[in-house]
Amino acid sequence: MADITVSLPDGSTRTLPSGATAADLAADIGSGLARDAIAAVIDGEERDLVVALADGATVEIVTPSTDRGLETLRHSTAHVLAQAVLGLWPGATFAIGPPIEHGFYYDFELSDDATFGPEDLEAIDSRMREIIAADQAFERGETSADQALEIFADHAYKREIIEKVASGEAPGELADEAGAEGAVSYYRNGDDFVDLCRGPHVPSTGRLGHFALQK
């Protein structure tokens, strides 16, 4: 198959085999960038490193040293927080968990009107670090709204987001949670955790680790 040519932010170009991904581009530029890369901006859209590049695309490799990279790290860490809480508190449900200016958060509702106490932070922190040590891949998928409602059958807040996105009534921050119009996007990591999300995310949980929980 024919090679492709992509442009970099400095105006230079790189020629790669057809089917090459953003991660392949980072490796072609240099081993240091390949190690640091966590996401990409392809033709102005934030994407995962595993996305295949089209001929003529303009690509920026995102690293943790940039504002965009820091936001991606925070976003992925919020997913790990949700995974930890849902694993530790059976019956818990979750709403949204975006990155914010100085960190990240996630909205949870525990069963039986329970609330988190200061002593719970240590357990959550410990479980998050186990997930990070497991180096679980973030895997993106897309599905229909009807199928997404089945996936999140036990999570009323997620179902509300899906229904609003499907009807075109979701404000921007909710649309970002569930992906583009006409499809619902989600991410899986580990064997039992899935969350609505447009992305992008770091390639795997092992790329995370520097965080502190506050109540």
Rank of each mutant, 00 (worst) to 15 (best):
M1P: 13
I4A: 02
G11W: 02
G11E: 05
L16D: 01
P17W: 03
S18W: 03
A20M: 05
A22F: 01
A23L: 09
D24L: 02
R35D: 15
R35F: 01
D36G: 03
E45T: 14
A54R: 15
G56K: 10
I61T: 10
S65M: 12
S65C: 05
D67A: 15
H75L: 06
L81D: 03
L81E: 03
A82Q: 04
T93F: 07
T93L: 10
T93S: 15
P98M: 03
I100N: 03
I100Q: 06
E101Y: 01
F104V: 08
F104Y: 12
Y106E: 02
E109H: 09
S111D: 15
D112H: 12
D113T: 07
A114M: 12
E119Q: 13
E119S: 14
L121K: 08
E122T: 10
I124K: 02
D125S: 04
R127Y: 11
M128R: 01
R129C: 04
A134F: 10
D135L: 03
Q136Y: 12
E142M: 07
E142W: 07
Q147C: 00
A148T: 01
L149Q: 04
E150T: 10
I151P: 00
A156L: 06
K158G: 07
K158Q: 05
R159V: 01
K164Y: 00
A166G: 01
A166V: 01
S167W: 00
E169T: 08
A170M: 02
D176Q: 12
E177D: 02
E177Q: 14
A180I: 04
E181S: 11
S185E: 09
Y186M: 04
Y187I: 07
Y187V: 06
R188N: 10
V194N: 04
L196F: 03
P200W: 05
V202T: 14
T205L: 11
T205Q: 09
G206F: 09
G209Q: 10
G209S: 09
G209T: 11
A212S: 13
A212R: 14
L213D: 09
Q214M: 11
